[in-house]
Every structure is written in C-alpha cells, then in structure tokens.
Design a protein around this nucleic acid. Structure first.
Lengths: 172, 172
DNA sequence: TGACTTTAGTTTCGTATGCAACCACGTCTA
DNA sequence: TAGACGTGGTTGCATACGAAACTAAAGTCA
C-alpha cells in the first residue's frame, strides 16, 4: 500500500553542494506531506466504509451543502467532472446518494445524501475532524496562523500559474 | 489537462453551520495546493523535455547525488520501487541515465546521469529553483519560517500515522 | 422556427499506478 | 555447502485517472 521504504542513506557522492535539493524543494515537500496525510486519513474511511478519496469528497460536500449538482460538487471539491461522475455513480449504487431531476434543466440533477448516506457522514465527520485536529496539534500554535496564510497564498498563486499555462498552452 | 472548473457557487442550502467544511479541512487543502503546484511545475518540464513527475524526481535525485542505486533513489525521493523502476527504464531508453553494475552485489546497479541527462538537469534545475522561489515569494516573509516548520512537523506526524496503520493493518 | 453554440454529465480509451508475484542474487546458519 | 530467508529490481494484473469524444438538453440569434 504505497509502501515506500525509508531513506537508508545509501547515496554516494555530494548532494550538499547541489543548488537544487529535492528534500527542500517546495513542490516536492508539498506533494509528500499531502500524500502522507491523505494516505493516513483515507485509510480510516476506506476501512470503515470502503470508499475512496473522490467518494469521500462528494460525501463531505453533500454533507456540508445538503443538495447540489454534480458540477457544483466538482467546483467545490476541486475534482474533475469525470471523477465526480464516477464517484456519484458508485455512491448511488450503494444507496448513499440520490439523484433528483431538475425539471427546469434536464441536463443536470440534484444530488443529496440518503438517510444511509447521512448516517455514514455523521459517523465519519467527527472522526475526520478529530484526525485533522490531532494533526494540526503537532504544529506549534504560534505557527498555525502563518501556516494557514501561507497555504492560502500558495494555493492562490499556483492556481493562477496552472490556469495561465492551461490557457496560453505554454506560449503565454 | 486536469481541467477543474472554478466553483460557480451553485450550491444550495447551508454549509456555514456544518462542522466539517471541506475548504478548511487540512488534508483537503494540502492536496489541493500540492496538486496545483505540481501541475504548474510539471507542465514546465513536460513541455521542455517531455518527462513526468517520476522521471523528474529521478533526474533531480541523481543530479543531486551523482550516483546511486534504485533503492536509494526511491528512499530519497519518496517513490515506490515500481515507480522508480519504470522511470529509470524510460530515462535509460532516452539515454539520460546509465546503469552500471555493482560487481559486489549483482542485484542492484549504480545509476547516474549521462552527459545528455546532466545537460537536461542543468537546464531544468535553475528553472525549477526559480519557480519555487517565485512561488515562495507570495508567502509573507515573516510567515516562511513558520510555514517550513509546520510542513516538517506535519510530514513527520503523518508519516508516523500512515506507517502505524500500514503495520497494524488497522487493528493497532 | 431552425441552425449554431454551449453546457452538464457519461463513456471510451490510452496511460499511470500500486500491489503481488516473481526472479536473480546475497546472507545467514547449520 | 546447502537450504532457508531476505533483498533489489522487474513484471503481470487490476484499478484509477484524465483528455477527448459523445449525448442530450439549453441558450442564442437570425
């Protein structure tokens, strides 16, 4: 299960003089911490309820907003529409989510948690919050606000960068 | 290309009263920022040299350490051994990396950048550093140290959590 | 009204991924 | 020296992913 061995230090040669050190490189560090956190958390809901990250995000989004379209879920949870589509399809099959047609726009439909889905959400939400809190605890309380700000700024900026490239196809 | 539309706010109902708000949930936020940053950066080296994240990490690791085994690369770059194996195979095919047998342990071999690989590394490294610096600039300089500390703590802690589950298979 | 365009959502298809099995080699112990 | 066990690395397999094509339904404009 993503079983990455610890660095046994078997590298030879320099590494101190190199200007680009992977372990200090921001994009890399972000990826590592995000994937470790995600892995630890997702194991919880995978074990308890057999769902994955996309399904989890749909559940949380619906738990938070009560009812919304697939498009809105995607926008809110930062997921590609195909991911949303498949996650919703799975949750529907498990009777955790229902689909209700929007009679004034038949392209979309309103999605919401079923009672079973709500029960699952009510089981998971506190556990997830607790997980996040325990995690945050390791960050010095004096650092937390700064950390939050930093994540927000980085998200903003990187979203802009990613979008620019997407539009200009690299020539912008 | 991971074309996630912006949130158009088409959700209906509450969301303010819910105790678990996705957009404030740490694991989610980390995933979003990490994937945006990774996306923005990887587009650079994908366009310039047609490689992906795993190949990039192998290149950087070898660029930094000069020569190491696949196992060491995996440990250092936090990649699964199959990912390393495939990335190295691809880089070898492109003559960016060479493999030299370890005569005292024939299971492993020493990997290193070829001159072409080194040239590519020398092209990419400054660009990547510049990218990371520009990114970091948006973080208030007073917040940077705190942010760095926080990422380190979170990495530490989540690595422990992920490892615990992996060992105890959830029953620990 | 009837073409043209846009949009929500699904499906298809090629690729990436990670686990498990495997292979070749090493190590440890008898 | 032989067998058991461990390790670095590759491969087979099933799954997850996203881009692009597609479907059906709106919107737009003449």
């Amino acid at each position: 299960m993503n079983n990455v061995p610890a660095d046994d230090g078997a590298a030879m040669g320099r590494g101190d003089s190199a200007p680009l050190k992977l372990e200090q490189f921001l994009p890399y560090r972000l990826n590592v911490v995000a994937s470790l956190v995600s892995q630890a958390l997702s194991r919880i809901y995978a074990e308890r309820h057999g769902i994955g990250v996309p399904e989890w995000r749909v559940m949380v989004t619906l738990g938070q907003y009560g009812m919304m379209t697939g498009k809105a879920i995607g926008g809110h949870s930062h997921m590609h529409k195909t991911k949303v589509s498949r996650a919703v399809a799975l949750l529907e099959k498990r009777k955790l989510v229902t689909r209700r047609a929007n009679r004034s726009d038949l392209r979309e439909s309103f999605l919401a948690l079923t009672p079973a889905g709500r029960a699952m959400y009510d089981d998971l939400a506190p556990i997830a919050l607790d997980f996040a809190n325990r995690l945050s605890e390791v960050v010095d309380s004096a650092d937390r606000a700064a950390f939050d700000r930093a994540v927000d700024r980085l998200t903003e900026r990187s979203a802009k960068l990613a979008a620019e490239f997407a539009k200009g196809k690299g020539a912008g």
